[in-house]
Simulated assay, not measured.
Amino acid sequence: MGSSKAVVCALAFVLLLAAETAAGASCDATALSPCVGAIMLGGAVTPGCCARLKAQQGCLCQYARNPSYAGYVGSPRAQGVVQACGLPKPKENI
């Protein structure tokens, strides 16, 4: 049952990312989908994930301020992914 909850959470995260795309044309949160496994399930951080994070780096603080994403962005796994990709930690209260 635990793995099905993880899949549901991962799918919910992807749907939230899709909703962000409609809200902000310059920031495409769906581009971060290669990072879902690492953030939601603790999987390996892939080069594709890091490339997408770097491309969206200017949007990370916006995502951190968004109440729909703040919990994901501030999670220990997400912070680990950001660190593994060599990016600065997004600040939620900018």
Rank of each mutant, 00 (worst) to 15 (best):
Val8Trp: 15
Val8Asn: 14
Val8Lys: 15
Cys9Gly: 14
Cys9Glu: 13
Cys9Met: 09
Cys9Lys: 10
Ala10Asp: 07
Ala10Glu: 09
Leu11Phe: 08
Leu11Gly: 14
Ala12Tyr: 03
Ala12His: 13
Ala12Val: 15
Phe13Cys: 15
Phe13Ala: 15
Phe13Thr: 12
Val14Gly: 05
Val14Ala: 12
Val14Trp: 02
Leu15Tyr: 09
Leu15Ile: 10
Leu16Met: 15
Leu16Pro: 08
Leu16Val: 13
Leu16His: 13
Leu16Cys: 14
Leu17Ser: 11
Leu17His: 00
Ala18Tyr: 09
Ala18Gly: 14
Ala19His: 09
Ala19Gly: 15
Glu20Cys: 06
Thr21Ile: 05
Thr21Lys: 11
Thr21Val: 13
Thr21Ser: 09
Thr21Met: 07
Ala22Trp: 06
Ala22Thr: 09
Ala22Asp: 13
Gly24Trp: 11
Gly24Pro: 01
Gly24Gln: 15
Ala25Ile: 13
Ala25Gly: 14
Ala25Cys: 11
Ser26Glu: 15
Ser26Arg: 12
Ser26Pro: 09
Ser26Val: 11
Ser26Ile: 07
Cys27Leu: 10
Cys27Phe: 12
Asp28Val: 08
Asp28Met: 06
Asp28Cys: 10
Asp28Trp: 01
Asp28Ile: 06
Ala29Gln: 02
Ala29Asp: 06
Ala29Phe: 04
Thr30Trp: 05
Ala31His: 06
Ala31Leu: 11
Ala31Tyr: 03
Ser33Ala: 13
Ser33Val: 12
Pro34Val: 06
Pro34Asn: 07
Pro34Lys: 07
Val36Met: 01
Val36Gly: 02
Gly37Lys: 02
Gly37Thr: 03
Ala38Leu: 00
Ala38Asp: 05
Ala38Gly: 03
Ile39Gly: 05
Ile39Gln: 03
Met40Cys: 11
Leu41Asn: 10
Leu41Trp: 02
Leu41Met: 08
Leu41Ser: 08
Gly42Arg: 00
Gly42Asn: 06
Gly42Pro: 07
Gly42Ile: 05
Ala44Gly: 00
Val45Lys: 02
Val45Gly: 07
Val45Met: 00
Val45His: 04
Thr46Gly: 05
Thr46Tyr: 03
Thr46Pro: 01
Pro47Asp: 06
Pro47Phe: 00
Pro47Gln: 01
Pro47Met: 01
Gly48Lys: 02
Gly48Thr: 11
Gly48Arg: 07
Cys49Gln: 00
Cys49Pro: 01
Cys49Arg: 00
Cys50Thr: 03
Ala51Asp: 09
Ala51Gly: 08
Ala51Tyr: 06
Ala51Ser: 12
Arg52Ser: 15
Arg52Phe: 01
Arg52Tyr: 00
Leu53His: 03
Leu53Pro: 04
Lys54Glu: 14
Lys54Asn: 06
Lys54Thr: 11
Lys54Pro: 03
Lys54Asp: 10
Lys54Ser: 13
Ala55Leu: 09
Ala55Phe: 04
Ala55Asn: 08
Ala55Ser: 10
Ala55His: 06
